[in-house]
Design a protein around this nucleic acid. Structure first.
Lengths: 259, 259
DNA sequence: TTAATAGTGTCTGTAAGACACTATGAT
DNA sequence: ATCATAGTGTCTTACAGACACTATTAA
């Protein structure tokens, strides 16, 4: 994950090695660091996000994003897990879904001083896109009293814990921007889909109705570019059956890009 | 700053108040958290970034982004400074520039486990755009042995500390994407500027030459939209003098957006 | 007068938006 | 037959890229 940032591999000279051996971190106060994951899906023609109901204080009974502490080692020998790995782990723990089936991208760090009344917590927020056919497989995970897919438009800030309402709002906006200029919509439709089905997803994400004719042109361009191909079979609908398509596996890594 | 994330103001019920009074954070290991600022400017027709030469181990003698620890309070009474505030403070300490003169935006969190050989450090990276006429005012700050504006294209990964090369690269790419769809270029030209001057900035940021005629059309559109207006006077050049323009103060807050 | 750069006009292709239209299958 | 929805065609406008061209000033 995060292939963009090259690994820190280098030769350490003897002087530096000695420095590192003798290094003792000063005991400045440190913040707690968490990852929170806004997992989106499109269900019943609505954009929804997976939230868990908090069972304990603070914000008892409010809805919160699934998340947890980043595992930090106890020295410079064991330094713990990457941020991306932490997000992947939380997602798997909380949903049971494999990270390879999911689009996951970092949104950014949120660190207002009083966002958690207990102590200083800085959170690194991610957003994930879950194909709707995987949603039934999601099993409520871990310590949450309850989990549910809530409609993003119906979320009330007062019902949400911490600054999570703001995070969800930002994530949804980012997704809408991104969906027009990439093929991340592939992570929000079933493996095979019809043109109207994909159009509906676009309409929900952008919040604007999509013209059938115009969308079809965009769609055909994607087919020509090799992003989409036709799949065998037809989708039976209430009226005329529709042709079925699928996304081709992308050449570019699509997991955990930062932007 | 960060107007997008609404403040966490809420009524705390008595039960929760008691919980918070008695709350003692468990002593899980915590990472250190820093902010790093990639401050860009355009000098001598090159995109440059402000780097400081490390005076101590690790990566002694390598170039690093200016940055430092986020100030964290010592309890839930004093929780320290926001991330945005930390970035602003670092920028001011390191350059002497006022944050109001600078475009500053969060890039994201970087948290590979071994990015700092001493201990686990998660950094929140920001990028800043500095108007070239402010660059002479920059005074080397604080603890750095030396600071310089290095050409981004000429940076060699091996000469740079930690994962800072990757951060600079990502920041430069993000800037190039953003510049076409917003007016952040206003933070990379002098207060008044000519059409060719702005065109050169665009050419440098995008890495592609900009056609005079086509750029002029885009420019005229910005004038019509009220983003730019003509300023009095003319710019004396080696040949024909050029008309001078200025950006109008934006209606939208442009400080510290997250994206 | 000439070099250099500011600034103008025009042609082309691509894509978006609006919208009228045809085709096909379930009932 | 007819209704609902899949799918098609076309007109207009906007913008990007390429490029030939004119205008104005310093030297």
């Amino acid at each position: 994950m995060s292939k963009k940032t090259e690994a820190v591999t280098r030769r350490v000279d003897p002087e530096e090695a000695a420095f590192l051996r003798d290094y003792r971190p000063a005991d400045f106060p440190r913040p707690s660091v968490t990852v929170d994951v806004a997992a989106f899906s499109v269900l019943d023609a609505e954009l929804r996000v997976l939230l868990v109901k908090r069972g304990g204080h603070p914000f008892k009974g409010a809805w919160a994003l699934p998340g947890g502490f980043v595992r930090v080692g106890d020295g410079h020998r064991d330094q713990g897990e990457d941020l991306d790995a932490a997000a992947t782990r939380e997602l798997e723990e909380e949903t049971g879904l494999r990270a390879s089936d999911v689009y996951l991208e970092q949104l950014g760090a949120f660190g207002k001083a009083a966002r958690d009344p207990r102590m200083r917590v800085i959170t690194v927020a991610y957003y994930a896109l879950i194909r709707p056919d995987l949603v039934p497989l999601v099993r409520g995970g871990g310590d949450a009293a309850a989990a549910d897919w809530l409609s993003v438009n119906a979320l009330r800030p007062a019902d949400m814990a911490f600054d999570h309402h703001g995070i969800v709002t930002q994530a949804a906006r980012r997704m809408a921007e991104r969906v027009s200029s990439s093929s991340i919509a592939s992570s929000l439709v079933t493996k095979t889909f019809t043109i109207p089905e994909l159009r509906h997803v676009y309409a929900i994400l952008t919040g604007k109705p999509q013209d059938p004719g115009n969308f079809r042109r965009k769609f055909e361009r994607m087919v020509e570019e090799g992003i989409i191909e036709q799949a065998p079979g037809k989708r039976i609908t209430a009226s005329k059956p529709a042709l079925v398509y699928r996304f081709l596996p992308e050449k570019t890594e699509h997991e955990c890009r930062r932007r």
